[in-house]
């Protein structure tokens, strides 16, 4: 009997079958209640399969590179490298609906490959269920989650740390990859995930989403509320959606358009200073 570990993230269960390395980030999310939305099996070998190339991610040096192929038998495979030019770390094969997957760990950092596989499977299998994996740093203040978006290096985490320092009662929910959900009742809610980048917190908490703020560097501080279409574009740019998957686009669109109807979205041009955090807090807190 193989080891099966069960987890729940943002209200969705999944299981991993097979021997896992130590993964402290997953521990707070262990849960056995509920039906899994996907099952990942860690395997020790894979037979070659015919496939046709679909897409290769191109996020540049320093970022993982993922090559995606469609299998003739249906389903997909994802071959992952920690960076372009490095040897393959792992191969993930999924069913067409992303509910079943197997993972072969080839070389190097096992938690890297397992976490990346889980993030892919989570994003795809929840696409039709109102969930988005966001690239965002999120703080909690007064019981609500405030999500900061922005390209890598624009200062999302810095802005979070300014809130933590200068806005009383602020805590960090997740610094890198929270889950934003459009709930069945139409409200927006943000959840911690096991994926939090360089600042692990792993609280396994959830709060109503208060606002989303796109951060841009500027020589001044100014905040503006975005109209619906720009809000949609802002959320979409920071959601981990894989655009080649047409089948999933409808689900993501439903989620994004539902979210912009209920969730205020802003753009903050700012300096990395206390005044920026105070302006932002005063505006989004209402």
């Amino acid at each position: 009997m193989a080891d099966i570990s069960s987890y729940k993230v943002a209200g969705f269960n999944f299981t991993i079958e097979g021997e896992l390395p130590a993964m402290p980030n997953l521990e707070p999310f262990r849960s056995t209640e509920g039906m899994p939305i996907f099952k990942l099996q860690i395997v020790s070998s894979m037979a070659p399969v015919p496939s046709t190339p679909v897409f290769k991610t191109d996020d540049g040096p320093g970022f993982p590179e993922i090559t995606i192929d469609q299998l003739y038998s249906g389903g997909f495979r994802f071959r992952m490298r920690p960076q372009p030019g490095l040897p393959l770390a792992a191969e993930l094969r999924t069913s067409e609906d992303f509910t079943q997957a197997s993972l072969l760990l080839i070389e190097g950092d096992k938690p890297f490959a397992i976490n990346n596989s889980l993030m892919l499977l989570f994003a795809f299998s929840t696409a039709r269920h109102g969930a988005l994996e966001m690239h965002s740093s999120v703080v909690i203040n007064d019981g609500k989650g405030y999500m900061f978006l922005g390209k890598s290096g624009t200062g999302k985490s810095t802005h979070s740390s300014l809130w933590l320092k200068h806005i009383p009662g602020t805590t960090l929910l997740n610094d890198d990859n929270p889950i934003l959900r459009l709930m069945p009742d139409g409200s927006a809610r943000v959840f911690d995930s096991p994926w939090s980048g360089k600042t692990p917190c792993y609280k396994n908490m959830e709060v109503p989403a208060g606002a989303v703020v796109r951060i841009r560097q500027a020589p001044f501080n100014k905040i503006e509320k975005l109209p619906a279409v720009q809000a949609y574009a802002s959320l979409m740019a920071s959601a981990s959606s894989f655009r080649p998957f047409k089948e999933l686009a409808d689900g993501w669109h439903q989620t994004l358009s539902g979210l912009v109807a209920v969730l205020p979205c802003y753009v903050l041009d700012c300096l990395p200073d206390q005044a920026a955090a105070e302006l932002c807090h005063k505006t989004v807190h209402g």
Binding site: A228, V229, Y232, R243, K246, A249, L256, S257, A261
Partner: peptide, 16 residues
């Protein structure tokens, strides 16, 4: 359609 407004977006491999 988003909140009563319309946009055209590129989706799928062809418009990645």
């Amino acid at each position: 359609s988003i909140c009563g407004e319309y946009i055209v977006v590129g989706e799928g491999l062809a418009q990645v």
